[in-house]
Design a protein around this nucleic acid. Structure first.
Lengths: 119, 119
DNA sequence: CCGGATCCGACGGGATACTG
DNA sequence: CAGTATCCCGTCGGATCCGG
């Protein structure tokens, strides 16, 4: 297994999750209401079936979301946040807020930096 | 340029940074006091010169840290948080706290999930 | 409808050697 | 001391096809 030296670091484990491409978007979507697979696909634009499945599996493995199968025909599956999953919404929301407030400033910094580099 | 569709999303831009392997560790280290290149290398275990340089450059480009060159011989360079960089410590700290509090629970969930998969 | 299996390109990041 | 340049490999993630 790779990165064996990081298995014991809580911060790295959490950042590896929320830092990936889709996890945060899924969590934010599920924070509004439980959601089925197909509905998630439509509401999280551009995600592939493969990555949606993998992201949901990882979140389920961590105990952040629950997976409920309804034996209808064809079957339907509903995903919802667990208490553990809901508990990260606070810290995550603070970060999202920070991003919204400061991003224009960051973007200005980047263009200015890049302009100086070009000269 | 890749991921052109994400350039306008504040959340993705921020998560792409703090989600990478070293940025958060650097920020936390600099939150205690300004620090020189070599000191950072020693205090952030296992980081390579290459990745330390790249991470610092990205943070400087975003305006999160400042870079001050002292024309001594040999030269020394000091990195420090800017006000913008300091402003993310709150949200980041909340996340780190959450990680520390919940990681044991997450790890138990993972081992239980993996045990069921194996059976 | 909800996935799993496979193939493949792109990118992050480590190791190493060189520079001012 | 503080980087830069090059090579290389593992992983992430998209596309596609197959199955219950």
């Amino acid at each position: 297994m790779a990165n064996a030296d990081f298995h014991g670091c809580p911060v790295r484990n959490v950042l590896d999750r929320i830092g990936d491409k889709w996890t945060t978007l899924i969590l934010l979507r599920l924070s509004r209401e439980p959601c089925r697979f197909s509905a998630l696909r439509r509401q999280v634009p551009d995600i592939s079936k493969r990555m949606l499945t993998l992201t949901l599996r990882n979140l389920e493995r961590d105990g952040m979301i629950s997976r409920t199968v309804f034996p209808t025909k064809p079957p339907s599956v509903e995903y919802a946040l667990t208490p553990l999953g809901r508990s990260i919404l606070g810290p995550l929301g603070a970060l999202v807020l920070w991003a919204d407030e400061r991003f224009s400033e960051i973007r200005e910094n980047r263009t200015r930096y890049d302009a100086l580099e070009a000269g």
